[in-house]
Amino acid sequence: MAALPCSKTRPFRSISLPVRSHPTTQRVEKVLNKLNALEISIAPTAETICNSLLGLEELQKCMDDLLNSTQTLQILSHHQHAKWFEELLEKSVKILDVCGTSREFVSQYKENVRALESSLRRRKGDSNADAEIARFTTFSKKMKKDAKRLVLSLKQVDGETPATAFLEADQETIAVIRALREANAVCILIFQMILSFLSVPLLKPKQPKWSLVSKLIKNGRTEREGLGNSAILETKLKTVEVQLDSIEMELEGTFRSLIRSRSLLLNVLSC
């Protein structure tokens, strides 16, 4: 089972904030540490992804509170022409775009799973079922390539804020910069998890093959065995559909929260 590059289990990054930082940045640190407790492996599960997206939504609410505070607005308004602030604005657009594309990928995957489920249930024309299986296999290969390209673009976004951003900055400014930077890093890691999940093929070549299932169904003498295998595969597809439904719903909330955060960052320019 080949997944996208994610060589080992890795946690979310936590931040170490100055003692006298804004109270909301302390909440950000708390949420990041909570996310850090989740195990992120080579092949993340749908449950881990949904829990991570729930944590991300909680994190984004903290970021909204941070960006809405008068103290933060004053800090950012004094640095709105700084290179690091311009980079944060640019990253917010790219991350929003990646979130939107990830939502589209999940939706497409779910539609294809449903089409394959429907084809197996009908089983009236085996040639139609075979054609649907071949189409789904082609779609899965394309999905893996598209996901890989999107991961590469994410890696370009996941750059560190230059160290110069922290030179001569006061403790509160440093805390805000770190909170914004780490919130972006968490978004990127979660989207990488989702893309890794989507890149794992459902039709494994060394498992009972779909073509074999089709042959078993065609063969009247082994019809019961064929129907049994088909039922197992239908159950698996239904499980994946439910998982994709959950991920899609959580991604919708994430997308809305990212739009709010982007709007709040833009508000700084009018201060």
Rank of each mutant, 00 (worst) to 15 (best):
E87C: 06
E250R: 11
T45R: 08
G100P: 02
A183L: 07
L66G: 00
G55T: 02
L251C: 03
A82C: 08
V93S: 13
L264C: 02
Q108N: 14
L67Y: 01
A3S: 14
S257Q: 07
K30C: 06
S263V: 13
T48V: 15
L266E: 12
L59N: 03
N33L: 06
E182I: 09
V31R: 06
V98F: 06
C99G: 07
E168N: 13
H78S: 13
S14T: 15
E132P: 02
L35E: 00
M143A: 05
E182F: 14
E117R: 12
L76T: 02
L150M: 14
D158C: 05
I190K: 03
K61A: 08
L88W: 00
M249T: 08
N267T: 13
P208F: 07
L244P: 01
F85M: 05
G220M: 10
A231I: 02
Q80G: 00
L154W: 02
F255D: 09
E111L: 11
K155E: 15
T164D: 08
L266A: 10
I194K: 05
M249F: 07
N112A: 09
T72M: 01
P11V: 14
D126C: 15
T222F: 12
R20Q: 15
N68I: 02
I42E: 13
F105M: 09
R121Q: 15
G228S: 14
A3G: 11
R13D: 10
L203C: 05
E90Y: 14
L227P: 03
K215Q: 15
K145L: 14
L116S: 01
I133T: 05
R121T: 05
T235S: 14
D158P: 00
W210A: 13
T173P: 04
S196K: 02
P208S: 03
H22Y: 06
K236V: 09
K144N: 08
Q80A: 04
E248S: 12
S107N: 13
D170E: 05
A46R: 05
P5N: 07
F191H: 11
N229F: 12
L150E: 06
M63Q: 06
E58R: 12
F255V: 07
V176C: 01
I177N: 00
R256S: 14
F105I: 03
H22T: 03
V106E: 01
E87H: 10
R181V: 08
L54A: 15
E58F: 04
